[in-house]
């Protein structure tokens, strides 16, 4: 049993299988929300109301021809999708789920997760760089530029709940509103939550921050040359990144799993769905902004906003309110 348990943990729950299933479900939900906001129906036919459509899309990609450009670095080109997927799945292992507390929680895991969540962007940059095509190169440089724009506000925003809870352990931050009995801390972190939401959108490269992949401008950015299995892996990576990102934001800002396995699990589903819903709303209501606009936007508004939030929390903390 002791051998099987870690394997189960990595491969089934909360490892790859759980993440894959949950993330495709979230993608379906996102697509449904997005479609309804645009007066469309969204996926309809595969499975119950099209819930299996994302899986079908990914499966289809797996059966497509896999082309590696002649001038690309074959090894790096093939390595990148695996590396990116590994990074996000590992980050997902630190999701504060109730069952496996001893395995996945230690003081400072928040920093590990933040690091692991930065990796996909670097992977995307390298993927574009090693594809050697004009669109991939432009996309790759945009990935990096955008990374510099959103990463700092993202870190600052996620620092706020950590400061409130006085811990670097996701588990402890998540249970803080319950253990301390002060529910209202969720309310005072609203600004940080908004910043985290917007920067997560930028991390996921979705409208209005889908600058690196902007289909109408640079075809597919770093992913232009990818096809078949490798593209499918990037798709899974993106889905899981959305799951992990929204689940973390939900855990850090909404508090974690009260009331045991079932209610806690349900609460995880509900709060993650709420974050995804908010992400879809953002996606539906804006146009894609330009690369110079996102840099200005994050350094002019997002970074100061998260600093202000941090200051408020520190002052409250210093005065013994928290």
């Amino acid at each position: 049993m002791e051998v099987v348990k870690p394997l189960l943990y990595i491969l089934v729950f909360p490892g790859f299988l759980f993440q894959f299933v949950f993330s495709t479900y979230l993608e379906w939900m996102d697509r449904k929300f997005y479609a309804r906001m645009q007066n469309r129906r969204g996926p309809l036919y595969t499975g119950f109301r099209g819930v299996l459509q994302p899986v079908a899309d990914i499966l289809k990609l797996f059966f497509k021809e896999d082309i590696v450009p002649a001038r690309a670095d074959r090894f790096m080109f093939s390595l990148m999708p695996i590396l990116g997927l590994a990074a996000v799945v590992t980050a997902g292992l630190y999701l504060p789920v109730w069952l496996f507390t001893p395995y996945n929680s230690f003081e400072g895991d928040l920093i590990v997760v933040l690091y692991l969540l930065s990796l996909p962007s670097l992977v995307l940059f390298l993927a574009g760089w090693f594809s050697v095509s004009p669109y991939s190169l432009i996309g790759a440089t945009r990935v990096l530029t955008q990374l510099f724009a959103y990463e700092v506000p993202f870190f600052l925003a996620l620092l706020t709940p950590a400061v409130v809870a006085g811990s670097w352990q996701i588990q402890k931050i998540a249970v803080y509103p319950w253990t301390s009995g002060s529910w209202w801390v969720i309310g005072i972190q609203l600004l940080a939550f908004l910043v985290a939401l917007l920067t997560l959108q930028a991390k996921l490269e979705r409208v209005p921050f889908d600058i690196p992949e902007a289909e109408t401008e640079v075809v597919g950015g770093p992913l232009t040359e990818y096809s078949g299995k490798k593209l499918a892996m990037f798709r899974i990576q993106k889905d899981i990144l959305m799951l992990v990102g929204s689940a973390f934001i939900a855990a850090l800002f909404f508090g974690g799993f009260p009331g045991g396995l079932w209610i806690g699990g349900l609460w995880l589903l509900v709060k993650t769905s709420i974050v995804v819903f908010l992400l879809s709303v953002i996606r539906a209501s804006f146009a894609r902004i330009r690369i110079d606009q996102i840099v200005t936007f994050s350094w002019k508004y997002l970074a100061p906003a998260s600093l202000v939030q941090l200051l408020v929390v520190l002052i409250l903390k210093g005065n013994g309110v928290l």
Binding site: Q38, V207, A284, S285, R288
Partner: peptide
């Protein structure tokens, strides 16, 4: 035009 700047919601509504 909305689609070119990634504003797909406007695109869908206008085409409706």
């Amino acid at each position: 035009a909305a689609h070119e700047v990634g504003f797909d919601s406007l695109f869908m509504l206008v085409w409706r």
